[in-house]
């Protein structure tokens, strides 16, 4: 892999931080199709990593392996020092430390916005209800929709739903946030409101791993961009390196199609 000066600088900046997510030779098969081919990467604490690539390249599969929505079949995944194995306790711990935002929002349609957010803090983190609710209201304030607390998800627009989903994940006070194409299912005019929330989050210093096609977002806030194709990480670099001077042909081709 090629690293230019900017990337080296970025690496230096990140080098002294702790490892947050470590993946070593992660393999994943669906029947006879290999979705991940020995993915190896480390994401540091407080880093914002954007994963991009053509559809079917395995980026969603990878991110879903990290909180074991999919079970990887080879290699190792370590999140915040906890290895992701068959150990029930480790799975529980990792899931309560890793928040995830889905493409289809996946809010619980039978619960109000407030209940959606407080469910996990109350029943997983064992918080008193009053405390959980006040935190939920604060989070709704933070994502810009404090007035929607009593509504049901079905009554909100797509952008609002996705912001509720972000608030729901944040309510668990996660150390890592995973975003699986958070804007792909949104109408164009709603993408910005979600991206704004994500930018604000990125600046707050939380570790983020984002699968997205929003190159503007990547350029603005990403510490590093990873390009995947065919189940492998093809190229890793800072935004400047990635957009101005990509080394791999496959990256160039992808960028020419998307920009």
């Amino acid at each position: 892999m090629n690293i230019d000066d900017a990337t080296a600088a970025a690496n230096d900046r990140l080098a002294d931080r702790d490892d947050m997510i470590v993946c070593v030779n992660v393999d994943k098969f669906y029947g006879d199709f290999q979705a991940l081919k020995g993915v190896t990467a480390t994401i540091k604490e407080g880093e914002v990593a954007v994963v991009c690539g053509p559809s079917g390249s395995g980026k969603s599969t990878w991110i879903r392996c990290i909180n074991r929505l999919e079970v990887h079949q080879g290699g190792d995944i370590v999140v915040d020092g906890i290895e992701l194995t068959n150990d029930l306790r480790n799975i529980e711990k990792i899931r309560s430390e890793v928040g995830m935002v889905f493409q289809q929002f996946n809010l619980f349609p039978h619960l109000t916005v407030l209940d959606n957010i407080t469910l996990a803090p109350i029943w997983v983190r064992k918080k008193p209800r009053a405390e959980a609710e006040s935190m939920a209201r604060a989070l709704l304030e933070r994502v810009g929709i404090p007035e929607q607390a009593e509504k049901f998800p079905g009554q909100l627009s797509g952008g609002q739903q996705q912001r509720v989903a972000i608030a729901r994940s944040l309510a668990m006070e996660p150390r890592v946030m995973l975003f699986d194409e958070p804007t792909s299912a949104l109408d164009p005019e709603m993408i910005k409101e979600v991206l704004d929330v994500m930018k604000e989050l990125a600046r707050s210093g939380i570790t983020m791993m984002v699968v997205t096609h929003e190159m503007g977002f990547a350029r603005e806030v990403a510490d590093r961009i990873m390009f995947m194709e065919g189940g492998e990480i093809v190229e890793v670099g800072t935004p400047e390196h990635f957009f101005t001077n990509p080394t791999e042909d496959r990256t160039k081709l992808f960028l020419s199609q998307i920009l």
């Binding site: 879903r64 909180n67 074991r68 929505l69 529980e92 899931r95 309560s96 890793v98 928040g99 995830m100 889905f102 289809q104 996946n106 809010l107 619980f108 469910l119 996990a120 029943w123 997983v124 729901r168 994940s169 668990m172």
Partner: peptide, 17 residues
């Protein structure tokens, strides 16, 4: 939908919850 199961898993609910 599958998404409901995944969202519940992702926020750390146990399978009984």
């Amino acid at each position: 939908t599958k998404g409901q199961y995944e969202a519940a898993d992702a926020i750390g609910l146990t399978s009984a919850q």
